[in-house]
Every structure is written in C-alpha cells, then in structure tokens.
Amino acid sequence: MVKKISIYILYGLVSIFFLLPILWIISLSLKTTSEIFVFPPTFIPEEITFDNFFYVLKNTTMTTYLWNSFKLVIYTVLGTLLVAIPAAYSFSRFDFKNKAKLLFVILIFQMISPIVIGIPIYRYYSNLGLLNNYFGLSMVYIAIQIPFATFLLKGGFDAIPKELDEAAKIDGASRFQLLHKVILPVALPALASATIFISINAWSQFLLPYLLLDRTSQYPVSVGILMTQGNFQQISTHYLAAASIIALLPAIVMVFLLQKFILKALTAGAVKG
C-alpha cells in the first residue's frame, strides 16, 4: 500500500514536471493585464478572460502564420508520402543486393542537422530566385522527412503478409495495382503514423523557414512566434502566452486524438531498426 501511494506521488511529480510549463502558459493566457503583474502570482486566474486570444488573433498576423504552417504541413505530408511510399514498397517487396545497407545509407540523412544543408541551400536558392518560395522550402522539408518516413512505412508494409500480394498477382494485378489496391488499404495505420510524424516535424521546423523566407506574410508559426516575442517585449506576456497556446494547439489536439498511434509509431521506429 505504501509502495502504491509512493508511486502515485511520483506519477504526480512527473506529470507536474511535464505539464507545469504548459499549464502555466495557459493560466497566463487567460489572465487580465493587471493580474499578470500580481505578486504572488495566482495559479487559477481570478478573472478568466479570452481577450488575449481575441487580441492576438485580431491585431497580429498570427492567423496568417497559422495558415502558412498549415499549408507547409500539407505540402510536406503529400510530397513526402508520394516519394516515400514507392521507396518503402521497393524495400519491403523486392529482394536485391545490399538492401539493408542502402536503407541504412538513407537513414544516415536523418542524423544530419538542417543547418548543414541550410547554408548551401540558402546560397543557391538566392541565385535561383527560390528564396521566399514555398515550393523551394517544401522541397527541403520533404527531403528532410523522407528517410524516416520511408523507414517507418517499410516497417508497416513488412507487417502485411506476402500471401496477399501473391493472390492478387495470380489474378493478374500489376505492381502498381498491388501497391494501390492491396497494400495501401491494409497499411493505413502505418500511413497514419507516418503522417503524424511528418506533420509534427513540419510544424516544428524553424531554421529552414527562418533562413529561406524573409517576408512576414510567408512565415510559419515557428518563425512568427519569435517575431511576436520580439514585438511584444516585456509588457505583454499575456499576449505572448496566448500566441504560444494558439501555436501549440494543433500539436496538442493531435496528441490527444492520436495518442495510441504516436506511442506505437515512436516505439516501432526505434525498436525494429
């Protein structure tokens, strides 16, 4: 019994460690301007207000940033899947020499920081006139996401029995039909995991858009919030808090809805190798 209680206490402590920063920002975002300055600070606002959110949505370009992030996520998810699905299919269903080695070489890219490729890309994008261009930016996002997506999807495809393919092949299905009609419908969980991962990563990207875009109207949320932080300065932490919550919301909603998938994808990714 004592043991159980101490575990519960530890559960509480761990959850507080992870949640306190977010809960505190939520609390700040719901406070009035005067309550922000009250010391000692109140944990639950005495007067809950949503004005900060309205202010941020109305008076800053936050909605534009959100929309831009949303667009970039969509482009990245679609582009990455388009490239990674056939590659994962090849790795899963064909036998060829050095397959494991080639897959590993692709995975190596995953380990490289975007800053490394960001530097030369900035240079030739500025020569090619591809700065401030979503196509150019999305292609780099896609390139960064492909290795892990391929790896994740291959794992998902491997789990589908080959007998399914064989049966369809006897019926005269082409390779393309096999992938499209047999494998993809069954691989939905893997596709969902890949989509979640790509989306979370694309939503978080900061350095690349920061380097490759310089128009406020094009910034995604990650860059936009940094500008917001600069603009608001010290006196308006409640606005900054509200802006942070708005920027976080899509990721958090995703976690709550898709917790099971995320857990599975996280563990499947690393355990299998």
Partner: peptide, 22 residues
C-alpha cells in the same frame, strides 16, 4: 503520465524556448 510526456515532446523547439523564457 504518458500523455504528459508526449505532450512535452511535440512542443516545437521554438515554442519550448518561448515558454521557458516566460
């Protein structure tokens, strides 16, 4: 606990910085 762990993990790096600076 699991949920709180994943939540912290999906917070974009930049927003992590903004939150902690507050």
């Amino acid at each position: 606990v699991k949920l709180s762990m994943i939540t912290a993990w999906v917070v974009p790096g930049i927003i992590t910085g903004v939150i902690w600076s507050i």
